[in-house]
């Protein structure tokens, strides 16, 4: 897979989502071409570059779980009321997020990516409208980066 940080449209979309959703962090994770691991490729609003080094296993972390289940995932008040330990959510720790909503990106009908939108301050429950908005951006991203994804 080509480096998505060099894919201008992916970076621009992340920045647009950050602005439109008034979020603190937006990240795009894609499953590696070889092996099941999932890596964060680009982000907007990040406070560190830790996301570049984070790789989660298929089924682990938010990105791994969203890809393995093919369903969205919402966290409203991290680290409270979470499944497992706080260390199972490295991107929430790295970016000091308190709430997040992550949706899968499908390529040829297979979940291979994740778009995550997060907030750092206070409990935030993503409304139905916000969720739909993020899903629409996920569809836009699928279309924009599908030529970079080799299945």
């Amino acid at each position: 897979m080509e480096e998505l940080k060099e894919c201008l449209i992916a970076v621009q979309t992340c920045s647009e989502v950050l602005e439109v959703m008034e979020a603190d962090f937006v990240g795009l994770a894609i499953q590696n071409e070889v092996g099941p691991d999932v890596r964060w490729h680009c982000a907007a609003g990040n406070i560190t570059d830790k996301y570049k080094r984070i790789t989660v296993r298929y089924g682990k972390g938010i990105a791994g779980r969203v890809i393995s289940s093919g369903s969205p995932m919402m966290i409203t008040s991290f680290p409270e009321n979470i499944l497992g330990k706080s260390t199972d959510y490295p991107i929430m720790l790295a970016e000091k997020l308190v709430s997040s909503f992550a949706v899968p990106l499908f390529f040829n009908g297979i979940p291979k990516g994740v778009l995550l939108v997060g907030h750092r301050n206070g409990i935030h429950k993503f409304s139905d409208e916000e969720q739909q908005h993020i899903k629409k951006y996920a569809l836009l991203l699928e279309e924009a980066i599908k030529s970079h994804i080799h299945l």
Binding site: T48, K50, Y51, R53, I54, T55, V56, T87, P90, A94
Partner: peptide
């Protein structure tokens, strides 16, 4: 640890 948390 580094690949999980991004901390060197």
């Amino acid at each position: 640890y580094t690949s999980t948390f991004g901390i060197e």
